[in-house]
Every structure is written in structure tokens, then in C-alpha cells.
């Protein structure tokens, strides 16, 4: 078990996978199969079409997995390249900081 950061407790600080793609059926399956391989729980998924782009965010739980944040980030980027989507991994705090007072 690798810790992402000292303050990570509870579901409010789960890492977020963000996916932007033109329109790609099967993207969700590709990502979730990667996560399944690594033993990563998906806690929440939210998706929609924004400004003509397919956009999805996934909150994941890394605590039970052997892979750390940085390596997962690299693997997701590589998968994104393969399937023509922009996949990034974020610390959830950045979104809260930018959007909430």
C-alpha cells in the first residue's frame, strides 16, 4: 500500500481520473479493465458530453493497490495515447481549490 499524501483520508480526497475524447465507445471498458488489472477500486463515475467532447471523471481508491500515483499516471497517459483520448490523473484537491471559496 502506497500513500498518496499525508492528508488523504476518506472519500473526499480520492484521486480523480479525467478523460476527454472526441467520442469513443469502449473507453470506459478500456480504462476499467486497466484499473481491474491493478486492483484499483472505482468509487464513482460521472460522464457526459461537454462542448461536443466526451468527458468522464472517475474517483478511484488506490489504497488497496500496489501501484503508486505516479506510475498509474504514466500508464493512463500511455493508454490514452493508444486509444486516442486524453487521460490524466489528478489529486482531487486541485479541483476543489480552483472552484470553491
Amino acid at each position: 500500500m502506497k500513500k498518496i499524501e499525508d492528508g488523504q483520508t476518506g472519500k473526499n480526497d480520492l484521486p480523480i481520473i479525467a478523460v476527454i475524447a472526441k467520442d469513443q465507445p469502449g473507453i470506459v471498458a478500456q480504462i476499467s479493465s486497466l484499473l481491474w488489472e491493478k486492483g484499483i477500486n472505482i468509487e464513482e463515475i460521472n460522464q457526459g458530453v461537454i462542448k461536443g467532447n466526451f468527458f468522464m471523471i472517475m474517483a478511484i481508491d488506490l489504497t488497496a493497490s500496489s501501484i503508486d500515483f505516479e506510475r498509474l499516471s504514466r500508464e493512463l497517459k500511455a493508454l490514452g495515447k493508444k486509444i486516442g483520448a486524453d487521460i490524466s490523473l489528478y489529486n482531487q484537491q486541485i479541483f476543489t481549490a480552483m472552484n470553491r471559496i
Binding site: 473526499n12 480523480i16 464513482e44 460521472n46 462542448k51 468527458f55 471523471i57 479541483f95 476543489t96 472552484n99
Partner: peptide, 12 residues
């Protein structure tokens, strides 16, 4: 998710 951020806010 935290603070109930909307999909749009995440997207931006």
C-alpha cells in the same frame, strides 16, 4: 465527490 463539484467545473 468533494464539495459536490459539477461535471462542468471538473471539465473547465
Amino acid at each position: 465527490m468533494k464539495e459536490g463539484l459539477s461535471l462542468n467545473e471538473f471539465y473547465e
